[in-house]
Design a protein around this nucleic acid. Sequence first.
DNA 1: CATCTAGTTCGACGAGTATCGAACTAGATG
DNA 2: CATCTAGTTCGATACTCGTCGAACTAGATG
Lengths: 106, 106
Amino acid sequence: MTTQTAAEADECPVVGTLEDVLAALGDPVRLEMVRRMWGAGGPKPCGQLYAGVSKSTASHHFKVLREAGIVRTARINGKVHQELRKAELEAAFGPVLESVVRAANR
Amino acid sequence: MTTQTAAEADECPVVGTLEDVLAALGDPVRLEMVRRMWGAGGPKPCGQLYAGVSKSTASHHFKVLREAGIVRTARINGKVHQELRKAELEAAFGPVLESVVRAANR
DNA sequence: CATCTAGTTCGACGAGTATCGAACTAGATG
DNA sequence: CATCTAGTTCGATACTCGTCGAACTAGATG
């Protein structure tokens, strides 16, 4: 990978496989992160997306979500934000994410 | 659990958590098993639900699906069959399984 | 009964995972 | 510049997971 800005480097051109996505969502911490992002409608500061685990653990989870193509990372006003790649996921898997988040919100 | 027949013993009264279900589906072998069952409309012999892994590995995967509450096991004419618990999953999680299988069928 | 097929359990193994604190990096602020 | 907060990476750890073949179980069949 050539030198890019942080935002670009986290812009995965491809979403992971359906299994990758499901496996990534199959963890309570990550599912909660995604659930919180779903309602945000845009980038959200990392610290607002989880509770109950350490910063380093949360960082690990964001990495898993990112590598599965579920989120993208952006630095806004010097703070790291995470945002769901709704459009890409919808394009690849249809209403999977939406149905999952709705189920998580039950 | 009191003594019951094999079919009854595999009748889990409760579906697993959403994370359990997603994690169970987040494996290529198990996702394929579920995808094949989806179109069956009823119990299906185990041997028809997978390919590429050994019998013991397949058996392990069926166990994971069963413990997540995704399938139920029944013995028909002496042969073990697996069947999706569509109604229970729909009741617990809405259209999650349907959207996942549709995505798997893309 | 013996034999067969289908499926489960067991034990082992290498790989992967979720977690943490320490060390580090990235910015903002005064 | 120093200091702070937010977030990442690293190393370590205990645990889990997917895999297999062997041994076992469950039925059907002749």
